[in-house]
Design a protein around this nucleic acid. Structure first.
Lengths: 196, 196
DNA sequence: CCTTTGTGTTGACGCTGTCCACATTATGGA
DNA sequence: TCCATAATGTGGACAGCGTCAACACAAAGG
């Protein structure tokens, strides 16, 4: 997965900053975002409880970094999905990609969503980049520049669908694959049930 | 707000269960959901740190109760909004009502969303009741029974919009009122930008 | 009246985030 | 090359947290 520059000299770690991030990414999936403690991350990275403070101001800063990482990856996935989509199908593609990513990294996604409220500029920037991808998908799908309202709506639909699916509050009907379900939901919603 | 049966006898509290809930509801707004500690709730209720354990199995149980309370109230608001809506306007009405409620109780809403993942049956039931209201709004607005997919989509749109607005990730343009913004987003999204 | 049951208190444990002082290592100018 | 300085990791300590066990008080009912 992660090949960190592992030159532990016995005392110094080599690249603790990255090591902590990697350990945290693992722990957040195995133990859940609620259980993620700074000390546990340090332990997993093989380092004393206070070592992280040399690289992150406090626990919140580590969580910010995790959220930023999540949004960066997600943006990448969305952008790839949009450019690989059949013409006219871009909106469905972003929604599907978002859901797929979140279901693949539920712990990280939940953590990122839970800490959305923070006003860290880097996190905000990562979010804005995601929104830009969504906007692209809207203009690509409709053939004209999408209004701010429509972009917001598509973004909200994707985000809401993802959240509800991740925490099991919404389940695709049996013998329907998640992708199909998302596609159906998005298409019916965008046309209010009217056949296109 | 809350007139709890306050018959503190000097030792017994009278109705600690309700008192704890009330204190928690206050604290979750004033101090934020992340800072909400069982001990702080007990303190606010004027009782020792362990007293809550006579009424809630653990901290998670208290949070469940809060989430359930939130969903119950929200369902009430949504139902009222649907029945008060102009015919054909029911979907916009639910979305607006959801956003309005969440913005009025951001701490509680965030807590409820963060703990959606739990599989407490009472919480699930409260959620299902909300979904039923949304379904009603869809059938009322379209004039025919809404499909499961469409209901899910509207639900996701409302939930996503609410979440993004609550944590400031989405801001209505200046000099546009939140209600108007939500209305515009919902209408444009449901018709993919096509004028109706 | 006395026992049982519900309720609140006190004390303790391990865990957490964080501060401080200190130890160790890397770096770069003389 | 040597040494000062900065970067990085360690250890100890503190308050606050969730929770358990033992105990104290009050209400209820035979």
């Amino acid at each position: 997965m992660y090949t960190v520059k592992m030159s532990r000299t016995g005392y110094h770690h080599g690249d603790l900053r990255a090591g902590l991030l990697a350990s945290a990414l693992e722990l957040v999936e195995t133990s859940g975002p609620e259980q993620l403690s700074l000390r546990a991350v340090a332990r997993a990275a093989g380092v004393s409880p206070n070592a992280p403070y040399n690289h992150y101001a406090d626990k919140a800063a580590l969580l910010e970094a995790l959220a930023e990482h999540c949004f960066d990856q997600l943006r990448g996935e969305l952008a790839a999905a949009v450019s690989a989509a059949d013409p006219g199908d871009e909106i469905t593609a972003v929604a599907t990609a978002a859901v797929r990513y979140a279901l693949g990294h539920p712990g990280l996604y939940r953590l990122a969503v839970a800490h959305l409220c923070s006003d860290n500029p880097r996190t905000r920037a990562a979010e804005d980049a995601m929104k830009a991808v969504v906007e692209n998908s809207v203009t690509a799908a409709t053939g004209r520049p999408g209004s701010a309202a429509l972009t917001a709506g598509v973004w909200a639909l994707a985000q809401g669908l993802t959240l509800l699916l991740v925490d099991g509050s919404l389940k695709p009907p049996p013998q329907q694959d998640v992708d199909e379900f998302v596609r159906e939901v998005v298409q019916e919603t965008l046309t209010l049930g009217r056949p296109d």
